[in-house]
Deep mutational scan, measured.
Amino acid sequence: TFVALYDYESRTETDLSFKKGERLQIVNNTEGDWWLAHSLTTGQTGYIPSNYVAP
């Protein structure tokens, strides 16, 4: 799992909003700078900017 370093507000319907400190499970990280992730807090799935999270 990864932890959010910053808050992120989604800009498209495929993005995932999250708050700093939220735990995220990475589903697919082969898309370059945008990873498909599942929030362990909200249960939602969407794309996140990879530079906003850390292991």
Rank of each mutant, 00 (worst) to 15 (best):
P55A: 11
G46I: 01
N28V: 11
S39G: 02
Y52S: 13
T42S: 12
S39W: 01
N51V: 08
E22A: 03
D15C: 08
T12W: 13
Y8K: 02
T30W: 09
K20W: 04
E9R: 08
L40D: 06
D33G: 14
I26R: 05
N51L: 10
Y8C: 04
G32T: 13
Y52A: 14
G43T: 03
F2Q: 04
Q25D: 10
Y8G: 01
P49A: 04
W34P: 06
D7R: 02
R23I: 15
L5H: 03
L36R: 04
G46H: 00
Q44C: 10
Y47F: 12
A37V: 14
R11E: 13
S10T: 06
Y47R: 09
P49R: 06
K19Y: 07
T14R: 14
F18C: 03
S10H: 06
D33N: 13
S50G: 08
G43S: 05
V53T: 04
E31K: 14
V27Y: 12
F18R: 00
D33A: 11
V27L: 15
Y47A: 03
L5R: 05
S50D: 02
H38G: 03
D7W: 03
T42G: 04
H38S: 11
G32F: 09
F2I: 05
Y6G: 05
W35P: 02
A4Q: 00
P55S: 10
T45M: 12
S50E: 04
A4M: 06
R23H: 15
A54E: 13
L5V: 06
S10F: 03
S17M: 04
G32V: 12
E22P: 00
I48K: 00
A4F: 01
S17G: 09
T45S: 11
R23F: 15
G32L: 11
L16A: 06
S17P: 08
G46N: 01
Q25M: 12
Y52D: 01
P49C: 07
D7C: 05
N51H: 14
E9V: 14
G43E: 05
K20A: 13
L5T: 04
V3G: 02
T42C: 02
I26L: 07
D15V: 11
E13Q: 11
Y47L: 11
R23A: 13
S17A: 09
R23T: 15
D33V: 11
G43I: 01
N51R: 13
N28K: 10
I48E: 00
A4G: 05
R11P: 08
S39L: 05
I48N: 00
T45I: 13
V3T: 10
A54C: 10
L36G: 01
V3N: 03
Y8P: 00
Q44W: 08
V3K: 04
Y6A: 10
A4R: 00
H38D: 03
A54H: 08
T42W: 02
L24Q: 00
Q25P: 01
F18H: 01
R11H: 12
I26Q: 02
